[in-house]
Simulated scan of single mutants.
Amino acid sequence: MSQQRKLEMKRKFTFQNDNDPKHTSKSTKTWLHQKNINVLEWPSQSRDLNPIEHLWVDLKRAVHRRCPRNPTDLEHFCKEEWANIATSRCAILIDSYPKRLSAVRKSKCISTVIIWC
């Protein structure tokens, strides 16, 4: 007989979503509330605040340059290019977060369309 254990988080975390309709639907909001999950309030359409969105752009550009001819190429190139993203790129995006946040605040929560490198 398998025994299920409840996972307990020792620290309080804040959930960040990208304001996609599936993340902001009434049922999702209800579920998050019932689970007592703190959700970060932030402007929709503001990819400036989410470091992963910048990495997706990097990945798409790198894969596009390689001109995949079929789904197999696409998958292979995506995996290779993802592995080639330097950890320093991730660090730069995280370190530049305060600047992006400040820019969004100054623009009154309108996406700043700045590519931070």
Rank of each mutant, 00 (worst) to 15 (best):
Q3W: 12
Q3T: 14
Q4P: 14
Q4N: 15
K6Q: 14
L7Q: 15
L7F: 15
L7R: 12
E8A: 05
M9A: 15
K10W: 10
R11E: 14
F13D: 06
F15N: 04
F15R: 06
F15E: 03
Q16S: 03
P21V: 11
K22Q: 11
S25G: 12
S25L: 09
K26P: 01
K26T: 05
T30L: 13
W31H: 08
L32S: 11
K35Y: 11
K35V: 12
N36C: 10
I37K: 05
N38T: 03
N38G: 03
V39A: 04
L40G: 02
W42L: 15
P43H: 00
S44D: 00
D48P: 03
N50Q: 15
N50M: 14
P51L: 05
E53V: 02
H54I: 07
W56L: 10
D58E: 10
L59R: 02
L59H: 02
K60E: 12
A62T: 07
A62I: 00
A62G: 05
R65E: 08
R65C: 03
R65P: 00
P68K: 11
R69Y: 12
N70M: 08
P71M: 10
P71R: 12
P71D: 11
D73V: 13
E75V: 08
F77T: 02
C78L: 07
K79S: 01
T87A: 07
S88V: 06
A91F: 01
L93C: 01
L93S: 01
I94H: 03
I94W: 06
S96F: 04
Y97T: 02
P98R: 04
K99P: 00
S102K: 05
A103R: 00
A103G: 00
R105Q: 06
K106M: 04
K108P: 00
C109S: 07
C109E: 03
